[in-house]
Amino acid sequence: MPAKPRIAVIMDENTSVDGTRYDMTKKYFVAVHRAGGLPFGIPYVMDMVESVVDAFDGFMSVGGRFAFPNEWFAEGQVSKAPHSERLDVELALMRGFLERNKPVLGICNGMQVLAGLHGCRLSPDVRAMGPHILEHDKRDHLHPVAIEDNTRLFQIVGRRELSVNTFHREAVIELSDRVVASAHAADSVIEAIEVPSRRFALGVQWHQELFADQDHPGNTIFTALVQAAGQSR
């Protein structure tokens, strides 16, 4: 029996307190394992980056809250989040996997990192984008997202709408010519992106991992990640 694809999962931390602990839901690991992969948590150790990129078949960038570079934001705006040593390690990992054309999945904060790395622009406060903007930072709240035809995400989930959770403060508001928006909320907030030049580089704004133990159609995203990782060997 062939070995299961190995997925590197960068750890999150408790930046909302003091940043002294790795702190994340187990469901990221559950989601990857149920999709047929072997998930491994990766700490913020820059010396490990090259070895991780060499040894693993795919990369998942998880949710979190930390400051992004000022140039990633729309003119006149800057991050309102705390600084973290996670940023430099995460950028090195994501660049490494993308350069090897190994699959990358970004969830919430991870989608924003994927976007910023490819020249997109962010808003630090989604609610400040206008009075029409829905509440996007509310745990246990669900809203629909419309999935664009002719996108990788549509091929993966096989439907034009998903009901997803929503708790994020920042949002991608301007796309570069290297990135495609593959899903939107009803208020036009970008809910998923992909990088067509890569074999598998997908970001979703919602926390799909929280549906890992449910029969949710979006869980096929993890299946697609693991399958793409299996093809990286």
Rank of each mutant, 00 (worst) to 15 (best):
M1K: 13
P2E: 15
P2V: 14
P2R: 14
P5R: 03
A8V: 00
M11P: 04
T15W: 07
D18A: 15
R21A: 15
D23A: 09
H33T: 15
G36R: 05
L38K: 08
L38M: 15
I42C: 02
D57Y: 01
D57W: 02
V62I: 08
G63I: 07
R65V: 14
F66T: 04
N70D: 15
E71G: 09
E71P: 05
S79N: 13
P82G: 12
E85L: 09
R86H: 14
D88L: 11
E90P: 00
L91W: 06
A92M: 12
L93E: 03
M94R: 03
G96M: 04
R100H: 08
P103K: 00
P103I: 01
I107A: 07
H118L: 14
H118Q: 13
G119C: 12
G119S: 11
A128P: 00
G130Q: 06
P131Q: 14
H132C: 05
I133V: 15
L134A: 12
E135P: 08
D137W: 08
D137S: 10
H143N: 09
P144M: 12
D149N: 15
R152A: 11
F154E: 10
Q155V: 08
G158L: 05
R160T: 11
S163L: 13
S163G: 11
V164P: 00
T166C: 11
T166F: 06
F167A: 12
E174A: 14
S176L: 08
R178P: 04
A181S: 14
S188Y: 08
V189K: 10
I193S: 02
E194S: 02
V195I: 15
V195G: 03
P196T: 00
G203R: 03
W206Q: 03
Q208D: 11
A212M: 06
D213H: 11
Q214L: 15
D215V: 09
G218W: 00
N219C: 07
L225W: 04
V226P: 01
A229Y: 02
G230R: 03
S232R: 04
R233L: 15
